[in-house]
Each structure stands twice: as C-alpha cells, then as structure tokens.
Design a protein around this nucleic acid. Structure first.
Lengths: 226, 226
DNA sequence: CGGTATCCCCCGCGATACTG
DNA sequence: CAGTATCGCGGGGGATACCG
C-alpha cells in the first residue's frame, strides 16, 4: 500500500498494518507461531507468495526479524519489541470486532481454523498427567474437514488432521456453528452439553473434566451489541 | 475488501477498517468533522468518489448514520456508538505509529494538512477575548501552500487559505518540517522560538502568550523509539 | 457544495509450476 | 517444508466530466 501523503502516526502505521491479511499474520505471530506453515494454518486462505511478501514487509517495518533455521530450510520469524507492542492494537480491534462487527455467515465457519484457534487455548494443567487425545468431529462438515485430533501434553498441544496413532481419550461431536459460538462466548458450553448439541464420548471422569480444559477465545468475555 | 474466511473478530473488523483511507476517515469523524468537505480536508488525497463509497460502507457497518441537511445539499455524517468506540482503536494504532512507524519523508509534509490538524488543537480559552487571527507562513512551501490563517474565536477556529479580511494578530514564519516536528512532539517549541527557526511577528504580549495556545498532536507525548 | 457517472489503467493478488 | 518465478485477471481506485 502506498503512502497517504500525511505524517499523522495513524497514517504511517496504516501503511503497514492495513495491508490485506497483515493483522491476521501479526495475530498469529503474537499468538506464538514462528514457522512459515504454522502462520499459514492460522491464515489458511492466504497464498504462500503473499505471506512471504507480508513477512518481508513486517521485517522492513521493524516488527520482526528472520533467523535462519538450523537445518537450512527456511527461516524462523521472531517479533521484535515493535511487533510485540502490536498486541495492544490487536486487542483494541478484536474487542471492537467482537462487540460491533457483522454477524457470521456460513462462509466464515472454517472448521480447521476453529480447531487451530482452540489448540492455543487449552489449559493442559487441568488435564491428567501424560498424554490426552481429544477427537473432534464436525457432523455437518465435508469429509476432508470432518475429523480433527488435539494431542495434548503438559507443554504442547498438536493439531492433527489424520488419526495420530493414539487412542482418543474423548470424542467431541458437534455441528461447526455450535462449537464456533461456544468458542466466541455467545453460548455457554454447559447448555450445549446438556442439550446434546455437543456430544461427548469417553470415560465419565474425562467427560466431567472436559469443560475445565477449554479457555475459549480471548475476546469471548466481550458481549456483542446489536 | 472481501472476507477472510474466518470468524475471528479481528478478521471481521478488518474487513471494514483495513480498507484504504478508512482509518483516516474515522479519525476525522472522531475529531469532530460531520460534513463531506470537512472530512476531505483531513484526508486531502482521497478522491470524492471513494470518500463517498467509504462513508456508505461505514454506514453499512453500523459505524455512522447519514442525516440529510436542511438546505437539501448533501448529508451530515454522524458517528454511532460503534463509530465512537473506534476511538480506542485509533488511539492504539496512533500510539504504535508514533513510537514505531517509519521516519517521515518530504512527501509526507503537507502544509495544508498540518494547519488543518493544528486548528483542532488550539486552546482558545487561553486567548484574548474576541477574535484572534494567526497567520502562518511556510517559508519553504510553493506559493499556493505558503500562507494560512487561523481565525480563532472562543468557540471556533476556522482555517483560511486566503486572507480572511481581518488583520493578523500574530505571524508565524517557519519551515514546514520544523513546525511538523514541533507538532509531533519531537522538538520543543521553545527551542525553535529562541533559535529563530520559528519566527513570530506581532505585539510583545501576543508573542509571549502564543506557546500557551498550541496543544500539539494528541500523540506528541509518546516518544519515538529507534 | 456534495455528490454521481464513466472511463480506464495499473497492480494486487490468486493460481500454478518449479527448486533446494 | 519453505520458499521463488511467472502469468494473467479483476477490480480497486484515480482522473475527469457532469448534475442539482
């Protein structure tokens, strides 16, 4: 994006931040992604070419630095102080979006993205020691986007789109929209569980613990206005 | 801008807010502009067609409402609650821009915009009763952008690009960059006055009072990092 | 003054194919 | 996996002219 012909700090910041996809990339970086394809999982509709361009522009703007990976394949992308400070901007925009932005359409309901977002907000300290495997089935999704697995350990949560080779400790079955609205804080999880719109399969103790594991969206606490 | 294919509130808000010129328009509205050409003076490089489009999009997004003017010519544009809440977003982005954004180039130094920005931040309560006329001359500007007048009364400050017909009470002569950097909080006004890089002509009392009238940019208090 | 209508150019961006 | 290179189109947006 070219310049706006004025030296207002909002205009200068806009040159970088209002480019297409840019804020979503910064969101991923601030959420902890450092590798090219990790960022991409949080911004699935961006092309590889463009993602690379945007990362270069962020580097030019001083918001991140590239660090070559040991194995020689690609770089690691690390936020600078400037990049980390963007968390405040993201917070302000996200809060506004949660309260005032348009309603969601079916187009927005990407199940893969939902699982990717959720995997960053799992409270593994509430889980049993060792490995816990969560299987999620979206009953209304096409085959390729129907099943996901969250492989949780104390210090990591991995997302799989194929069976991870471990038995699932808990199976969560729901429609996409239901879980999406629970994630957003629009519906309480408990209601959806008792109504059966979210169905759990697993041993009783695990099922009972499940609600303690989900931390939901960081914007869930803000309630939408009409 | 089309959708991003995810229901993250940052993505939803971005659809509206990251369109070209959009944040600057919202800035003007939040600064108090309600009329088409007032907004345009704060965003001089936007075309009329596009400004109208953007205002319509803001209305669709629920951030403003149009109200027909009495005389039948055009509308008044009024922010809604949603639009006013964007002040928080503007504050976050402006603060980031002030601290971390790129340096200014000569391209950014639009004298007309500087005067327009200044006119919103004049403390008229510090001025003598009645009318005070400030004349600003940018010694390094081309003829058409060299002279400006601020006609200040208790409850209004008007910007003129031609002599307003009243005698000037104070003439301020400076290079554009000097006043721009004072406005941004990069240089202290006093230093520029004593050095003579900003020259004042007028009666002694008025000259002495002048520094009390300028409130500077709302982001001037944040200091640029390198 | 506050728009609308039209034209047209450029470039942003998606898609695809190829490399190490 | 993490890119680079190339092509091609679509439409965003600038310029200009016109209206009430």
């Amino acid at each position: 994006m070219s310049a706006f012909g004025q030296f207002c700090p909002i205009a200068l910041a806009s040159e970088v931040l209002t480019q297409k996809w840019m804020l979503l990339i910064v969101r991923e970086l601030n959420a902890g992604s450092r590798r090219f394809n990790d960022i991409r999982r949080g911004v699935p509709r961006i092309s590889g070419t463009l993602l690379k361009q945007r990362l270069d522009q962020l580097e030019l703007a001083g918001a991140l630095i590239k660090k070559p990976l040991d194995n020689g394949a690609g770089d690691e992308y690390l936020l600078t102080d400037a990049g980390r400070e963007l968390k405040i901007v993201l917070g302000a925009i996200g809060e506004w979006g949660q309260i005032w932005a348009r309603d969601i359409t079916p187009e927005d309901l990407d199940p893969g993205w939902l699982v990717w977002a959720m995997h960053r907000r799992i409270d593994t300290s509430q889980m049993p020691a060792g490995r816990t495997v969560l299987e999620i089935e979206f009953s209304d999704a096409p085959k390729t986007q129907r099943f996901f697995w969250l492989v949780c350990e104390e210090d990591s949560v991995d997302v799989c789109v194929k069976p991870p080779g471990f038995e699932s400790d808990l199976i969560v079955k729901t429609e996409i929209k239901t879980l999406a609205e629970v994630w957003r804080g629009i519906r309480p999880l408990k209601t959806e569980l008792t109504s059966g719109r979210i169905k759990l399969s697993g041993n009783e103790n695990i099922k009972k613990q499940f609600p303690n594991w989900l931390l939901f969206s960081i914007f869930a606490k803000f309630k939408k206005q009409t």
